[in-house]
Design a protein around this nucleic acid. Sequence first.
DNA 1: TAAATAGTGTCTGTAAGACAGTATAAA
DNA 2: TTTATACTGTCTTACAGACACTATTTA
Lengths: 248, 248
Amino acid sequence: MSPEAKSEKEFLAGYKPKDYPSIALTADLVVFAVTGAVLHTALVRRGGHPFKDALALPGGFVGPQESAEQAAHRKLAEETGLDLGQLPVHIEQLATYTEPDRDPRMRVASVAHLALLATDGHTLPEISAGTDASAAAWHPVHELLDSDALAFDHTTILRDGLDRLSGKMEYTTVAARLLPAEFTMTQLRTVYEAVWNVTLPAGNFTRKMMPQLEDTGKKARAAAGAPAALFTATDRHIHPPLAKPRVE
Amino acid sequence: MSPEAKSEKEFLAGYKPKDYPSIALTADLVVFAVTGAVLHTALVRRGGHPFKDALALPGGFVGPQESAEQAAHRKLAEETGLDLGQLPVHIEQLATYTEPDRDPRMRVASVAHLALLATDGHTLPEISAGTDASAAAWHPVHELLDSDALAFDHTTILRDGLDRLSGKMEYTTVAARLLPAEFTMTQLRTVYEAVWNVTLPAGNFTRKMMPQLEDTGKKARAAAGAPAALFTATDRHIHPPLAKPRVE
DNA sequence: TAAATAGTGTCTGTAAGACAGTATAAA
DNA sequence: TTTATACTGTCTTACAGACACTATTTA
């Protein structure tokens, strides 16, 4: 209870915000999910100008009482109709895009987030359009990135999201966030192959990942072949990292 | 509201910004430089409330016509008095901090940046206080992080900045940004040791880094001992990475 | 049985870690 | 010379990559 604390209290009580540049803040989402060994991203079809009818990342304004990450959670539910109470989702901040002219309407800074949805590898979560969009659907990422088809700077953001995920998978088990809590080694390897757009030798992958995972002791029901062990992820760092094969 | 009828050009000409939450955007800086084998960061002493007389990261509002990165450049010059025309500086975005109550005065989102200043390892660039601060000075990072001494959430930001730099040094030559364009292997190793707060075996370090650097053919003048080769950095990725020794 | 998948064994080449040895300069 | 620093050689261990092999299930 020093005199400084008291005077700071007085200062704040009488504080009137000074002028500062008017910049709107949005939270945008790069949403990833894997099906059929292909990485997909959730995109909305824009209902209005600018970039009308173009594909865009889901997102929207950060509210006055929420953090950007909370806004990303809320927007993910609103814009895709996903029930996040049911579906495990991993959200982390990606980067912030602040070029003054990135939105022709007004000054908007966008805090982009990476969102990973858990799937069994066969079915994508069903998504439906929110208020601002005319449609919401899944799109294969690697095909999409060959064409600069997205609104605003969203192609850049999507590429940054893919790069972040690709890199982080080398030294963490974050790839497991694209799978159910318990998963087989083959499921995990399929996620790596989908995100990296490569094929990996199964035997060596198993040996490398085994110490990073927790064996549940349970076995998966196999359609054919030996039943696979079910693992859960840990937060251990992979050291040395699992190197992404360089493209030849 | 019949967006169908309007072209995008007409739409934008008649566009009036809708209400959006009022959030101020600032660019803050984690500025690093190495001297005497110790990593230092530039901090300002706050002149006013809140957190009066506490240490804080340099930074300020993003202007209406500049990106956050441009604002970071400008603020670095303004708040430290550094002549960035003379001094090579590397700036990259770190993360954005958006907790609603992180500034007691008003809603402020801060885009934090990592700034690396080149030094010869013996002298830190001289810095002087800008308008908002009563002083600006260098502080040893690892000592500082033991005590949560900074204003706002700046201790978190500083720690995130250190983590980013530490990690990136494993697989890039970004550490060279803390040195002049041409540097010796020992200088570079000293940077690694300062940032990671470890000691590294000189021989193995040389062998590992050699293929990542460009040999200028020139030699440094040595006070004693054999003259060291002068290298320049490349943008090659270190593969496999140079692992940071885990703390025992 | 055959077919399919899971997981292990084994060999080879590369590189990290430890550390000794040699080379090149200044005092 | 001595001393200090810069590098290189060498040995051991670890592990990635390649790929064959065995084990375990379903049909």
